[in-house]
């Protein structure tokens, strides 16, 4: 059993708490014990950086320090949280002055950023820690006949310093989906476009244009569903899609949900039946 600290961010708490339960249950099937790092806070969403970058570094030094206190590596699911935390770690690891200054502040809470915990995203955690074979073995209900479009999202591939896969030609998501027994589609118009999640509250028109590109592309190649490891890309596909003038009504899945379903967890508990755009495929 591998034990890892799970960073929830905003996507796995409040009304989205069930997403963590799905995640925990799914991970149990591949012998991973995910421990919720309860005292962590929002990573700042790459928005607090606009207020002050050091604040973003400090918040995330605290988040990482909480995993270090438990002696655990940190697993992040959200692409943006991953990018923001990994960037902060890089800054803290390469800038002693910054690290010392922030550690001085963390002292009050009895915390210290040491740089001992590794930060994983779902994709490299599945590839490097769990292994594709183990995923394959856990499958109880192979996704036979499911045409699944693979969508990575941006913040696991860019910038290069924090990328978890080859930024130009990544393969981990396809490998995971293949292990579930799905027919993977990884070449479609818009596969590299941004999901538009972060511009919904800065320039909404941009979000809708991005969704049109990606979901239009997914529809054109005849995929049944688009799967993404990022809960924000998923929210953009499932929730913001309904804001489009003519929504293509393309169903989507957050990767752990479709994995849970393939591992034999039912549609309701896997979360797949809670989407605004219904997942009809059985």
């Amino acid at each position: 059993m591998v034990k890892v600290g799970f960073y929830q961010g905003c996507c796995f708490q409040g009304q989205d708490a069930h997403m963590f339960e799905t995640m925990k249950e799914m991970f149990k099937r591949i012998d991973v014990d995910v421990v919720l790092l309860e005292e962590t806070t929002c990573c700042g969403g790459n928005t607090i950086d606009e207020e002050n970058r050091k604040l973003s570094y400090a918040i995330n030094a605290r988040n990482i320090a909480l995993a270090e206190k438990e002696g655990l590596d940190m697993l992040v699911s959200c692409n943006t949280c991953y990018m923001v935390i990994a960037k902060a770690k890089r800054a803290l690891d390469t800038n002693k002055k910054l690290r010392d200054e922030i550690n001085e502040l963390l002292k009050e809470e009895g915390l210290e950023y040491k740089g001992t915990s590794k930060i994983y995203h779902l994709l490299d955690f599945f590839r490097d820690v769990v292994g594709y074979e183990k995923i394959k073995k856990a499958v109880k209900r192979p996704l036979k006949g499911w045409k699944v479009a693979a969508y990575y999202g941006c913040h696991v591939l860019y910038p290069k310093e924090i990328a978890v896969d080859n930024s130009d030609n990544p393969s981990s998501l396809q490998e995971i989906l293949k292990a579930l027994g799905a027919e993977v589609i990884d070449d479609y118009e818009g596969k590299d476009a941004c999901c538009g999640y972060h511009s919904f509250y800065t320039d909404k028109s941009m979000t809708l244009k991005k969704l049109n590109r990606i979901l239009g592309g997914v529809k054109k190649v005849g995929a049944d569903i688009v799967a993404t490891p990022c809960p924000l890309c998923f929210k953009s596909f499932d929730i913001y899609q309904t804001n489009m003038e003519n929504p293509p009504r393309v169903p989507s899945s957050f990767l752990p949900e479709i994995m849970a379903y393939a591992f034999g967890i039912d549609k309701d508990k896997s979360g797949l039946s809670h989407h605004l755009i219904k997942v009809e495929k059985e």
């Binding site: 790459n46 990018m83 941006c154 913040h155 591939l157 860019y158 910038p159 290069k160 990328a163 930024s167 941004c194 538009g196 972060h198 511009s199 800065t202 320039d203 941009m206 991005k210």
Partner: peptide, 14 residues
């Protein structure tokens, strides 16, 4: 000139 249109995808950094 579109300051708020940036989607923060980080491709420019890459």
């Amino acid at each position: 000139g579109g300051l708020w249109s940036c989607v923060q995808c980080q491709k420019c950094l890459y």
